[in-house]
């Protein structure tokens, strides 16, 4: 069941269309909070899908994808500060994510299982600390995007609210879905999963694990870099604490994949649309009723992760699919029974 199915592709694209429709509704009824939640869900879906080509399909679990996210966010910011159009800045973020992955590969790919995971965390933390003390990128106080003069809105992608940004994010996720879907169904998908299952056995079948892990890491870095750029164009201010954060970036990216189900293609998208809006809702509710305890929304998230780990370790998507199989069997039996009676 680990190969992406036609139905998963259709579902993924349907979710994106639904997201855009919901964004339209939010615009008409002036619900900025809803639009922002959709935007964040898309941003984490973008990064989560990229994370999952490594974790779910290759067996390399990263808890340091903030590396690519943060570098992508900074790349777009610095591009805008140099008066480069934001659209190019987004592409640049992908390129920087890709490059970071290529440069880190010789270190990361030497390590396996939990050692790999530790190396990813360490790298993200090192980058965060380096950016904090690096004045050229704003140090600990971060960077602010240039104010767009009237007429420059498209140039710097400066819009009010999240409404228009949702379109940009949905397009990026759609591109990623199509690209990853076709890659993972092809020979590369088979070879990556063989490596995940048993590296020695994969080598006996003429597969060079390093080559394919390198490929998976590079493409993962590219799309996670793009996700970082989405943060920058929407929020216009970044600092190392935010974009390299272990919890709200690295762990969240992994979380949406784990909740949705890492052995499914669709997992991270579904996981993201469950976890992110829920977390945003809890956060804003806590903020309005007891702002002192707003940070407690992390507790709720932790609880969600625990419940999923205990009750549906295979993830929501696989759960629903299993339920659907059972239902279709029940329907079949009932139908046959009815036919027999008539």
């Amino acid at each position: 069941m680990s190969f992406p199915t036609q139905r998963e592709l259709v579902t993924a694209l349907a979710v994106l269309i639904f997201a855009i429709a919901a964004d339209g509704v939010a615009y008409v009824f002036d619900k900025p909070f809803l639009a922002n939640s959709i935007y964040l869900a898309l941003m984490y879906a973008l990064a989560g899908l990229a994370w999952n080509i490594l974790a779910g399909f290759t067996g390399l679990v990263s808890f340091g994808h903030a590396v690519f996210f943060g570098l992508g966010a900074y790349a777009t910011m610095i591009a805008m500060l140099h008066k480069i159009p934001a659209v190019l800045g987004i592409l640049l973020a992908g390129g920087v994510g890709f490059l970071a992955a290529v440069l880190l590969a010789p270190i990361w790919l030497r390590l396996k299982s939990h050692w790999f995971t530790l190396a990813t965390i360490a790298t993200a933390e090192i980058l965060k600390l380096s950016f904090i003390v690096w004045p050229a990128v704003g140090g600990a106080s971060g960077l602010q995007a240039p104010i767009a003069e009237p007429g420059e809105e498209l140039y710097y992608l400066y819009f009010r609210g999240a409404y228009l940004y949702v379109f940009i994010a949905a397009v990026l996720v759609a591109i990623e879905v199509v690209v990853l879907w076709s890659i993972l169904r092809g020979p590369i998908g088979y070879k990556l999963q063989a490596i995940r299952e048993d590296e020695d056995a994969a080598m006996a079948l003429a597969i060079d694990p390093l080559k394919y892990k390198f490929f998976a890491l590079a493409i993962s870095g590219f799309f996670t870099g793009l996700a970082g750029s989405l943060y920058t164009i929407r929020y216009r201010f970044i600092d190392p604490f935010t974009v390299f954060d272990l919890i709200s970036v690295s762990t969240y990216i992994a979380l949406v994949g784990i909740v949705g189900g890492i052995y499914t293609f669709l997992g991270p998208i579904i996981g993201s649309f469950i976890v992110v809006p829920a977390a945003e809702y809890v956060r804003s509710t806590l903020m309005s009723i007891a702002s002192r305890y707003a940070a407690l929304h992390g507790v709720v998230l932790g609880a969600v992760l625990l419940i999923v780990s205990l009750m549906a370790p295979e993830g929501v998507v696989e759960r629903v699919r299993a339920k659907m199989v059972v239902w279709s069997k029940v329907v079949k039996v009932v139908r046959e029974w009815v036919v027999e009676r008539s």
Binding site: S2, Q193, A194, E197, D198, D200
Partner: peptide, 9 residues
């Protein structure tokens, strides 16, 4: 000798 199937495939 110790079989190595790709168990989840």
């Amino acid at each position: 000798q110790i079989v190595k199937p790709f168990a989840n495939l």
